[in-house]
Every structure is written in structure tokens, then in C-alpha cells.
Amino acid sequence: MIDNGLLVQMLLGALLGLSVYLPLAAGQLSLATPAFYAVGGTLAALLSTRWSVLGATAAGGFPVLSLLLELVLGGALAGTLALLVGRLVLRLRGIYLAIATIALVEIVRVAILNLPFTGGAIGIFSIPQPFTDASGYLLTALILLVLTGWICQRLDTMPLGRAMAAIRDDELAAGCMGIDTTRVKLTAFVLSAVVAGTSGALAAHFLNTWNARQGSFDVSITTLAFVILGGSRAWLGPVVGGLLLTALPELLRPVGDVRLVLFGLVIVLGPVLAPRGLVSPELLERLGRWGSPTREQKP
């Protein structure tokens, strides 16, 4: 039912979910993920098709090492952009921040559409392939996901992660406790951009083509849905949300014309039935207790 190509899309979905999760873990509702995704993708598309030093062959092949370089560069460019923009937008809060980041997404989309070297509406095509089939992409995306997940897990025990959690609970109090809230929020924002930029660079090769439509407002909302449905209190939430919601429209194909109606219903009913998301901290604790009889205390 799920082929490796779809699995790659699911893993990319999980990565984008994590990119939305990271600022949210510091209490910042940023919807800028598609902008950074688009920046990373455009960079990879440009580099691999225009810069022959990277070693694209006439037959459409591409060295894996060059791909890795692009992933790094895509993440770095997105991160730099986030560093510049973040200083400005992170002064905003709540819904204002959300809408400022949507504005950023639209500005980046229109810029990619209008710049003289990004191919206009058609975009950049014939992007060379580092792998002969989807399994190479699968492995790369999985490694990226495991790496990002590991960082998110490590954050829980690091001062940075604790500071993020403190800001999420109460920004004012966190400031009083001596946490440099601006720096912490900016770090989370840049991390989010790096994840999105890297994912975009990989996606550009996987999709064979890249255009301005890839980073749009729609993506902002779908990726937010990954986090909300999966759960925003643990990093595994957006991962599960991204995997499931990317697969869902494909798995619903047998129902025919009403598949998007059903997909919409899932999005409506998901948060209503599970307001804490599929993966809540309680669920993880129960999972952690499972099979160890010493922990039988009721909270």
C-alpha cells in the first residue's frame, strides 16, 4: 500500500512537523517553515542544475557527496535568513507572530516567482538525481529525521531546552528567572529554519523539479496540522502527525471523489477527540511505565 516514494514524502512531512514544533516548544507559533523549505529547495535546485562543479552528469546523475553539501548549505542559508528575520519578528507574540510569518512565506513565494534566475512559474526542472530509486532518499530522510529527533530529545535535558519550556509556560516569569528569552527564542527559530531548509534541499532532488508553489500558505497550515494532530508537547507528536497526515490522502484513494472530504473530517475531529494530540506526555509516561510493575502510583 505504501511504497518507498510515499514513505519519503511521509518522512519529509515528519521533518517539517518538527520544524514547526521547535519554535512552538519555546511558545512561539511560527508558520514560517514553508519559507525556509522553499529557500533550501531553491538553493539546491539552482546549485545542482547551474553549478557544474558539483558534478551533475549529462545522464542526470549527481554525486551523493554534493547532495550532502547542498543539505548543509540549504540549512545554513535558511538558518542565516532566520537569524536576520527572527530578530525582527520574534518581538511579536501569539497570533501576530503567526501572521507575520505567513507574510514572510508569501513574500518568499512571490520573490521566487519573480526573481530572474528561478525559472518563473515553471520553476527549475531536470534536477539531477543522486540515487537511482526512492530507497536512497528514504535512507537520507530517515537519517535526517533520526538526527533531528535526537537533538529534540537531547534538548529536554539541556539548559536550552529547559529555557524553552520555561518560556512556553510563562515568558515573563522566564525573563525574571534570568533567562535571555530573546536569545532562546531566536535559537529555536533558527533551528527550525535549518531543519526546514535541509528538508527543502532534499525535497528538490526527490521531486525532480522545484517552483514557487512548493512553499505556500497551504503548507504552513498543513504542517501546523501535523503538530496539532500529533501533539505539540513531545517531539514525537509532530513526527507521528507528519507521517500519518501525509499518508492519509494517499491511503484514502480507494474511496474516490470524497477522499478530501474525509481528510477534512479527520482534521476537524482529530483535535476535538484528542485535544492534546495523538502523542501526549501522559501517553509517553504510560508507555514508559508499561511492563515495569514497581511504578504503580496513581498521579
Binding site: L224, A225, I228, L229, F263, G264, I267, V268, P271
Partner: peptide
């Protein structure tokens, strides 16, 4: 925040 997503879903259905 959740209402952003549920209302979006309602829009998709409509």
C-alpha cells in the same frame, strides 16, 4: 490554537 486547525478542516470539507 487547535481551532485554527479544526476550522481549516471544516473549510476543506465545505
Amino acid at each position: 490554537l487547535l481551532a485554527l486547525i479544526t476550522s481549516l478542516g471544516a473549510g476543506v470539507v465545505l
